[in-house]
Amino acid sequence: MSFKKILYITCLIVVILEIVFLKLMHLGHGYFEFEELPAFGALVGFWGTLFIIIVAKSLSKVVTKREDYYD
C-alpha cells in the first residue's frame, strides 16, 4: 500500500471518529459556535493549510530573491 493511500484512509477515519464521538455522542464541548460544525478539526486543518500555502506563495512573489541579493 502506498504512502498516499495510508494518508487518505487516516483522514477518512479521523473524520468519521470526529463525527461519531463529538456529534453523535456529544463527548466534547467547544468554546465557540463555529466549533459545532461537523469535523471542525479536519476543516481547520484543510482550510488553514490552504490559506497558509496561498499566502506564502503570493508573498514569495514579492520577497523571494536570489541568494546573492545582499552581496
Binding site: 494518508l7 487516516t10 483522514c11 479521523v14 470526529e18 479536519a42 481547520v44 486543518g45 490552504l50 500555502i53
Partner: peptide
C-alpha cells in the same frame, strides 16, 4: 483532524 488534513494538503 488538523494533523491528518494538513498531511493531505
Amino acid at each position: 483532524g488538523i494533523f491528518s488534513f494538513t498531511g493531505l494538503v
